[in-house]
């Protein structure tokens, strides 16, 4: 076997590759322009396949959220996600729910409120568990101390 190719390669080539890979990913996930020379329809088909896969992953991450939309879930999610690169299905589901508060069932609105009580998430950084929190939630209020969540009011009976 050949072993004569252990050089580090051409750093300029790697820099250009990095820029071209980023341009392609942005075109496929973030609404960026498609770099020249690609088959636009084929790249679109691949980007659409990724969106469908993401819709399925988010539905598995938060089934009740997807259930709010029934048969329209995939269309609703892909329309929202088309120019938003994934940040993992947990955060994608959360970001989607925050952006669609009016479309949530009462049960999912409560789940979202409880999630907000448990976690500190500014929408950009990684969510972090809160040490303690007190929140109004639909139908009552929630208290969370060191990961233990208690719900009071009508919401507690859901």
């Amino acid at each position: 076997m050949s072993t004569g190719h252990m050089s580090a390669g051409d750093p300029g080539g790697l820099e250009e590759l990095a820029a071209r890979q980023e341009a392609l990913v942005r075109a496929m996930t973030a609404g960026g322009p498609l770099p020249p020379g690609f088959d636009a329809a084929a790249v679109r088909a691949a980007a659409d396949a990724i969106l469908r896969k993401r819709a399925g992953e988010v539905a598995r991450a938060w089934p009740a959220l997807a259930a709010c939309y029934g048969d329209r879930w995939r269309a609703a999610f892909t329309a929202w996600a088309a120019e938003r690169p994934t940040r993992g299905s947990f955060r994608d589901s959360w970001d989607f729910a925050r952006a669609h508060r009016d479309g949530l069932s009462p049960a999912v609105a409560l789940e979202l409120a409880l999630r907000e009580t448990r976690w500190d998430y500014d929408g950009t950084g990684e969510p972090r568990l809160r040490k303690a929190a007190f929140r109004r939630v639909p139908g009552g209020f929630a208290v969370q101390v060191r990961g233990r969540l208690r719900v009071f009011g009508k919401a507690a009976r859901r």
């Binding site: 190719h5 580090a8 390669g9 051409d10 080539g13 790697l14 250009e16 590759l17 990095a18 071209r20 890979q21 980023e22 392609l24 990913v25 942005r26 496929m28 996930t29 973030a30 691949a46 396949a49 990724i50 969106l51 896969k53 993401r54 690169p85 994934t86 940040r87 993992g88």
Partner: peptide
């Protein structure tokens, strides 16, 4: 590759079949 410049693709994407990509893969 699955990400570039801090942006996640969300799935496996093909690399160009080029010397630069061979260098990247090898490293």
């Amino acid at each position: 590759f699955v990400r570039a410049g801090g942006v996640e693709a969300g799935h496996l994407l093909p690399v160009p079949r080029s010397r630069a990509a061979l260098d990247a893969l090898t490293a």
